[in-house]
Design a protein around this nucleic acid. Structure first.
Lengths: 331, 331
DNA sequence: GGTTTTTATGTAAGCGGTTACATATATTGT
DNA sequence: ACAATATATGTAACCGCTTACATAAAAACC
């Protein structure tokens, strides 16, 4: 089986024309049962399988899409974006799409690369620049945004229900009797931090709770930044009894700060995270966090993209994936 | 700029033949300076960029490679395999390779899929089955193994220097005065666990330290499995004073078990992990762990694969990437 | 059974590049 | 200035598949 066989080989062996062989594979109902069998048999013998490149060439479509992670310093290592990637991959593989993955940094997706690699659609994860989006759209590359929204653009966005997640988390804290609740706002992406912050304020206000300027601290979305900020927050005389963290990494930093200050969790301090990443169960006590179904988000991205590519009208512009609070021992 | 331009358009606008245009792009030194400029100018005006599909068709090479994660239950979410993936992606993008990524589960790579998708080379991560390897090799698909070795196959493998990593970790513990050192062997992949276990025994023996059957505990490579196993291990009357963990997740489980048993880290128990994953700095105390340069491993995979595809003789069969112990406060 | 209609198959022209070979143009030597 | 050589460009076939159109075969009709 050393050489790869082509449609011509099958044609010759089965005694029909290449056109018929082609039809037997892509439009089986156009060829008579008996002929079809002959073709399949020959194909089987030759271990024939159609050449996707030649197919793409003839059909003028490549079924090739890309997932670009737009977040400074982020890689596929980012558990959140990896989760989305997983969902995209699964769905793409199932639908026979070819998926190229990259981060903005090591492969700045430009119109010309998209063009030359014949990419038909792009899923932009995170903080995509409007200029990139409009360039791509100008070139008729289908674009879907995930975990982000950009005002003034007409394209499908897939996001998590941040507001509901925040509400569930904050209301759990309130329900457990907490009144002085702080927020540790790690700088994830502008969109996400904005949503979570807004929802936090809104929810606190609804419950008649004060949020002073010192109750919300910004910090870098990594352990060190969070530990530092949390230390400040928890060193205040009227320190909060609960901290709502913008994500799990920040929560881990809060854990470290608390422990170093001699506080016991969850007795002295309740902590809630966001993302429900794998660290939640590695921490002690285990971290209560808001689960985001990233895989589902990825799947939906591909579905929306497919719909765009098929030229469907009425592709939903906004898809919101539910979030769910996972209660563990940190509260 | 709505329609995409082809080499014919450039040919017409610049007044030279398509052959020359083609050469101007792929073999610039074969065309005279002045002609080249005309061609580039026309291309610029038309926003021309060569069609990769057509190119692949003519050249009979696709520059398409795949990375397949072979580990039950594993996804791209696995930080270790994601790190490798990151390295692969960067290098692949730089060298103009197209990369398809998948896990064994949701896209069982078969010879026919490899064939029809025109995949020229495959990087198999983790526990690849020999049967898959030989099938692929039979079809002349280039194969590189990463984080694994299979006896009896002639192919490049890229692995970490497990033995050295283990030695550094264990010798650190011994250097700090520990004598009763246990190993918590999470079932990662057969190859990896085998290497780490063997190296552990060897190193202990060299230092004249006993390793009883109760001193090595197998467990699932997740937090719960590790917590359970660690609890048993640490409940013994003559409990070890240090635990060498097969990876960081297992170490996190050990942390939890220790804390629940009222042990203080690092005073009552020293813990060392493996992989130096992101959780290391999230734990309190921060986890000492063996760093594996996964990105480098990924890069090397692509380099080896490229070498195979270019038909180079003497592609190294074994590439060992150094490991480095990162000392933190858990010891 | 012969004509019309329907269905199955074949022929050949692309899809957008590359490249062997032929030809035209430039460079060199005397 | 002309032949010999080196270099630049053009012509056209090919990569493997699809599909419009033409033709052949089968089915349906009277």
């Amino acid at each position: 089986m050393s050489t790869i066989s082509t449609i011509y080989d099958v044609s010759r062996l089965s005694g029909v024309s290449t056109a018929t062989v082609s039809r037997a594979f892509s439009n089986p109902d156009q060829v008579r049962e008996s002929t079809r069998r002959k073709v399949y048999e020959a194909a089987e013998m030759l271990h024939y399988s159609p050449n996707a490149i030649a197919r793409a060439m003839a059909l003028q479509r490549t079924d090739k899409i890309a997932y670009l992670i737009c977040k400074k310093g982020a890689t596929i290592l980012d558990e959140f974006y990896a989760g989305i990637c997983d969902g995209i991959m699964r769905t793409a593989n199932r639908s026979d799409f070819q998926l190229l993955v990259s981060t903005e940094e090591d492969w700045p997706l430009t119109v010309s690369t998209a063009q030359s690699k014949q990419i038909e659609g792009v899923i932009l994860g995170g903080n995509a620049q409007p200029s990139l989006v409009s360039e791509l759209q100008d070139q008729h590359v289908a674009v879907v945004l995930v975990n982000n929204r950009i005002a003034g653009f007409d394209l499908p966005c897939v996001v998590a229900d941040e507001a509901s997640g925040v509400r569930q988390a904050v209301e759990l804290l309130i329900g457990r009797g907490h009144r002085r609740i702080a927020m540790l706002a790690g700088r994830v992406t502008p969109y996400v931090i904005g949503e979570r912050y807004r929802a936090f304020l809104e929810c606190m206000k609804e419950h008649g709770l004060q949020v002073g300027p010192a109750d919300v601290k910004m910090c870098d979305a990594n352990v060190d930044g969070a530990t530092e900020a949390a230390t400040e927050l928890l060193s205040r005389p009227d320190r909060p009894t609960a901290v709502f963290c913008a994500n799990d990494v920040v929560a881990a930093g809060t854990f470290k700060a608390a422990r170093r200050l001699g506080l016991h969790l969850p007795e002295d301090l309740a902590v809630v995270g966001f993302d429900d990443s794998s660290v939640c169960s590695m921490l002690e006590p285990e971290l209560t966090s808001v689960n985001i179904n990233t895989r589902r988000m990825g799947e939906l991205c591909v579905e929306r993209l497919t719909a765009l590519l098929e030229g469907e009208k009425q592709v939903p512009r906004l898809t919101v994936v539910p979030t769910e609070l996972i209660i563990r021992r940190s509260v």
